[in-house]
Design a protein around this nucleic acid. Structure first.
Lengths: 231, 231
DNA sequence: ATAGAATCGAGACGTATAGTATCGTAATCT
DNA sequence: AGATTACGATACTATACGTCTCGATTCTAT
C-alpha cells in the first residue's frame, strides 16, 4: 500500500496547487515523515523557466520539466495539479516593473515601461502572458491563482498613478484601474494580439497618447510638453 | 496508390491553408476529378464554430469537428493543415464591428464598441481571441494568416478615426494605428488578461478616457464635454 | 460511353503526452 | 527503532494528432 502520498487540493480541473508543504504558516497539521525538498521545488521551477524560454508554453510538457529538473513526474504532480499552476508560480518569480519615482507621471511611466519592455517583454518568456490569458478564458479557476500574481506585478504602475493623484497631477476622482488598463492595453494588444514589435522610442509616444488622449494627439505638442501643466 | 489527393502548402508547422480548390480565380490549373464540396466546407466551418462555443479553443479537436460535421478527418486535413488555420477561417466569418457614422468620433466609437461587446465579446466565442494570440506567439507563421483577418475586423474602427481626421476633430498627424490600439487595448486587457467583465455603461467611460487622456480624466468634465473643442 | 483523377466518409495506424499508480529507496519525525 | 512520507523511475490507460488506406462517388477529358 502506498499510503497517502498526496491528496489533490480543491481545484477544479487541476488548477490549484496540489498540497502545500511549502511555506505554510506554523501551527498547521503536523507533518510526519520525510518533508518535501525545497531544493527540488526550486529545481522544478528553474527547469520550467528554462523550458518556457526555449520551447514556449504550448510545447512545455510536464515530462520535459521532470527530465530537465531530474525529478520524477509524480514529484511534480504532488505539488502542482497541472502545468498551469506550475507555470503561474514560475511566472511569479519573473522580472516585473522596476519601481521608479521621477517626480512626474510621464517620467515614471516611460521609465518603467521601457525597462519592462527591455527586461521582459522583449524576451521569449513574454509569451507566457498570452498563453495564460488564453488558458484563463477556458478555465476560470485559473484566475484565482493568476489574479493575485497579476495584481502584484502591476503594483508599481498603480503606485505611480497614486503618486500622481497625490501630487495633483491628475484628477482625484480618476478611475485608476481604467487608467492602468489604458496604459498597459495598447502595448499588450500590439505585442500579443497583433504580433507587432515595439521600438523603445515608441513607448514614450504611447505614454503621451494615453496621458493626453487621442483628441490631443499632436506629436510636436506632446514632445514639447515636458512636465509643464501648460496647455 | 492513392494518387495525389493533396499537397500541403508552403506552411511552416502546418499553419497555412492546405490546398485551394475553393474560390480561386478562373484560368488557374484546370482541376480534374471530383471537385471539393462547398457544402462540406461550410459544414466543417459551422461545426468548428459550434464546438468553439461549446468547449472552447483548447478543447477543440479535429476529430471532434469531423464527427460533428459528419465528415472524415482526412477531408479536413485536405483543406486545412491543422486546427489553427481552420479556426482562423471560421473566426473570419464571425460578427465584427458594425460600421457606424454618428458624426462624432466619440459617438462612433461608443456605438461600435458597445455593439461589438454585446454581439461578440460577451459570447463564449470571444475566447478564440486570446487563444489565437497565444498560438501566434509560438508560431509566427500563424500571423501571416491571422493578420489580414484582424486588420479587416478592425477596419470600421480605423474608418471612424479617418473620418475624425477629415472632420478636423483630431489632429491630422495623429498616429492612427496607435490611436486604434489605445481604444481597443484597455478592453482587450480587461477582458482577456485580467478576466474582468465590462459593463455596457463602462464602454462610454473607456472611450472618453482614451479620447481625452488620463490627465483630463474627470468624469464630470468628460461627460459634459460634448463635441466642444473647448478647454 | 469510357477512362482517369480527385473527392468523399470511415477508420486503422504509430506517436506523443496527460495524469495515475506502483516500484524500491531515502529521509525525517516521534 | 519504527512509522511515515517524499523521492526517482517507470509502467500504465486514455486521448488526440496527423498519416494512410479503403471502397465508393463525382467530376473532366477524350
Amino acid at each position: 500500500m502506498a499510503a497517502t502520498d498526496a491528496v489533490v487540493g480543491s481545484g477544479i480541473k487541476g488548477v490549484t496547487r496540489a498540497s502545500g508543504a511549502g511555506a505554510i504558516s506554523p501551527g498547521a497539521t503536523a507533518a510526519a515523515g520525510r518533508p518535501r525538498s525545497e531544493q527540488t521545488h526550486r529545481a522544478i521551477l528553474d527547469a520550467t523557466l528554462a523550458l518556457l524560454s526555449e520551447v514556449g508554453f504550448a510545447a512545455l510538457t510536464v515530462e520535459g520539466v521532470a527530465s530537465r529538473a531530474g525529478v520524477g513526474k509524480a514529484t511534480i504532480y504532488r505539488r502542482w495539479a497541472s502545468k498551469l499552476p506550475l507555470v503561474v508560480e514560475a511566472f511569479d518569480g519573473l522580472p516585473g516593473f522596476e519601481e521608479t519615482d521621477t517626480g512626474t507621471l510621464a517620467g515614471d511611466l516611460k521609465a518603467m515601461l521601457s525597462g519592462y519592455l527591455k527586461n521582459f517583454l522583449a524576451t521569449p518568456l513574454a509569451t507566457v502572458y498570452p498563453s495564460l490569458a488564453a488558458e484563463r478564458s477556458h478555465n476560470p479557476a485559473l484566475g484565482e491563482v493568476l489574479d493575485p500574481v497579476l495584481v502584484g506585478r502591476r503594483r508599481p504602475l498603480d503606485a505611480a498613478l497614486e503618486r500622481a493623484v497625490a501630487r495633483g497631477e491628475i484628477a482625484a476622482d480618476t478611475d485608476l484601474e481604467m487608467a492602468s488598463d489604458l496604459i498597459v492595453g495598447p502595448i499588450a494588444v500590439r505585442l500579443f494580439f497583433r504580433g507587432a514589435r515595439i521600438h523603445p522610442a515608441m513607448v514614450d509616444d504611447m505614454v503621451e497618447l494615453a496621458l493626453h488622449g487621442i483628441k490631443r494627439a499632436s506629436p510636436t505638442t506632446a514632445a514639447a510638453d515636458e512636465s509643464t501643466g501648460k496647455r
